[in-house]
Nucleic acid binder design. Structure first.
Lengths: 222, 222
DNA sequence: AAGATCAAAATTATAGATAATTTTGATCGC
DNA sequence: GCGATCAAAATTATCTATAATTTTGATCTT
């Protein structure tokens, strides 16, 4: 208990583990053992179990009864699935957010777009990219929808971190510009169509995993 | 421990509570007290806490740190939100399921449609309706998408049970027929457009709550 | 009487201990 | 040598107990 603990211990553990899973520090398929995690966070295993349930809900881990929890592994079809879901839901969110978009909000998005452009590492790029998308869809005010989109973003990010190419930036930036321009011109349909395409674009390249093997990796970079 | 317990206790508690919340046995806003639930299920509160996390993930309950868990309450805007999400995701699922739809599957959907028609109570109607939708979208094989849709269906059902009108059946049946016909004719776009409209149709009427007050109730009947 | 204040009760959150299940590793038989 | 079998170890799931927080209710003041 190093910190005053604004949130519950379980929440903090869940966040910490989610970060690692997303960043790829823990490889897919790895078993998460509650006692080990409990020891690391200097707590008992009860909060750890609750954290596991949260990760499970986010789709970052899967648990089999009596057999523990493992980090969820993804294949290409699942990456595509997440991308398709994101596209469908972000389009919906943007449609509902559109009437509430102000110049100030678009400026904030513009800033996020520039930060994206200026990012020198994946983490910063991912943060700015997520901020761009969230700024545009948040005004819809639909909490459940936004929460679901956030979870999908987290799932996407896992792949982004494992396979990243600089040339993707250019394409992404081009799309971001197009979306913003369309919105400034009041052309909602063009913005939505661009977003729909954008969120489903998937990059692919072989990567070397931590364990040494080479496998195909895919990233949602929208 | 009356049963051999195929699943973990937490899972069973979560299922039992979810059923009650959906059926409306427990009113929205009610606090779920872990010791009481634990006593009822003849267990300790640890599995109960895990069950709460699952309900939370499904959107059936909300928990505030250190202040316990309450049954999620819905207002009209949230009902609309769930309906809109379902429409967007079911359309996506149907699009991906379409290439895998066989005559046998359409026949199964036809059967579900008939069961819907023949249902004499809300429960049976809801079951058949869900089966109709699931039969058509399941062939897409996208697990995460299907799981999300299931959760949205559960959320929808809560309102269906609290406000139900016989005339809704007719409209629903008409839509179900139209979707099936379009699919049999290979007209995917018409099927999708109908589904999109269908899933967002919301019924409304005043109902008397368990506590005696009258309030507006809404139901997603698609 | 209405509102604020404080103490008791109820409830949540966590810890430590126990029971049950799965995994692992080594031995035995073929 | 290879596979099956069984026992030991590790791990999960649950229970009982304790600490901390919030809610409740009664008293006191204005």
């Amino acid at each position: 208990m190093t910190k005053p603990a604004e949130d519950t211990i379980a929440v903090r553990i869940a966040r910490a583990l989610a970060e690692r899973i997303i960043a790829g520090t823990i490889e897919p398929g790895t078993r998460l053992r509650q006692d080990h995690v409990a020891e690391e966070f200097e707590t008992s295993h009860v909060p750890v179990r609750e954290a596991f349930r949260r990760l499970e809900a986010q789709g970052l881990a899967i648990s089999e009864p009596r057999r523990g929890v493992r980090v969820a592994s993804f294949d290409l079809s699942e990456v595509k699935e997440v991308a398709a879901m994101r596209a469908a839901l972000e389009v919906l969110a943007l449609r509902h957010a559109a009437p509430h978009l102000t110049a100030a909000i678009l400026d904030k998005a513009e800033q996020a777009r520039r930060d994206c452009d200026a990012a020198t590492d994946v983490r910063a790029w991912e943060e700015a990219n997520r901020r761009f998308h969230r700024t545009l869809v948040a005004p819809c005010g639909m909490k459940r929808l936004l929460a679901t989109i956030d979870d999908l973003h987290a799932a996407s990010a896992r792949f982004l971190f494992s396979a990243w190419r600089s040339e993707w930036e250019a394409r992404t930036d081009h799309d971001h510009r197009a979306i913003l321009n369309a919105l400034r011109n009041g052309d909602l349909e063009t913005a939505i169509a661009t977003l729909a395409r954008h969120a489903q674009w998937i990059g692919e390249r072989p990567v070397r995993t931590a364990s040494g093997a080479t496998r195909g990796a895919f990233a949602i970079v929208g």
